[in-house]
Design a protein around this nucleic acid. Structure first.
Lengths: 141, 141
DNA sequence: CCGGATCCGTTTCGATACTG
DNA sequence: CAGTATCGAAACGGATCCGG
């Protein structure tokens, strides 16, 4: 296991558990990419604008898999490639991410238009379901 | 400015903005303490079970203040003491934190009882308002 | 090529001791 | 009580190498 070999396995109080996912910059970006950006491969993540280093990426993917948030499997279309997908547990992070987006949209200049934000707020549940579905279907095909 | 003198000031895409708050373990804990645990002083935060180091605490408080999430002011009751409180922008983080709690409760053993979780889910808005109000009133007294 | 692993110089973190 | 100063340990990022 590269980088940060010490694994902290414990937790009790609410939120503390989510801390390993949300307390980390890169893990958060990976989940966002999976949920909203249709990125699913190592290269997709590494090539993102924030450009994470490959060793760090490997580390985070390993941890997210260990924590049951994502799952890796060979791409059905091209067995040489590896696909990362969210598990159900990972898909359920969507509401948290959506609230983050809404908060950001409210207080900072973001890419989301006011109309999009209004739509997202009004139909939060539908938006979440859509993101999850698209992440899921693109994963299983 | 202690520790991490480089300030990254930019961002465009949704979520990226929230990354400085949520991408960091300690900032998240501080916001949680302010919102749900009635902690408001330097010593409160430093004494929490996770026990953040004082220099790190100083750093995060500085950044949270810089980002307009919290505000520092002398305690009205004892002017020698410093109180930290959430700004409106900070209070608006409550929905995100609540979703985190719910997710954690769903997938990990947490301190929240099933009944509390059900209550929190059903009356999300009320719960958020309550947390914000308690944080606010205890702040202004 | 893709998905990593490994090495390495630099930055940041964080535990502890200390100070106004 | 609310922070600084110090300093070793970790994490980071960049480059490069490697197996399939």
């Amino acid at each position: 296991m590269p980088v940060r070999a010490t694994a902290k396995r414990r937790s009790a109080c609410p939120i503390n558990v989510a801390l390993e996912v949300f307390g980390d910059h890169w893990s958060l970006l990976i989940v966002r990419d999976l949920l909203f950006k249709g990125r699913h491969t190592f290269a997709d993540f590494a090539g993102a604008e924030e450009s994470i280093a490959t060793n760090v990426l490997t580390d985070r993917l390993t941890k997210l898999e260990r924590d049951g948030i994502i799952r890796r499997r060979p791409d059905p279309a091209d067995r040489r490639r590896v696909r990362y997908e969210l598990t159900d547990k990972g898909l359920d992070l969507a509401p948290v991410l959506v609230e983050m987006i809404l908060w950001s949209a409210r207080y900072e200049r973001t890419a989301a238009t006011p109309a999009e934000v209004r739509e997202m707020t009004k139909r939060k549940a539908r938006f979440i379901a859509a993101a999850q579905a698209s992440s899921r279907t693109s994963a299983s095909r």
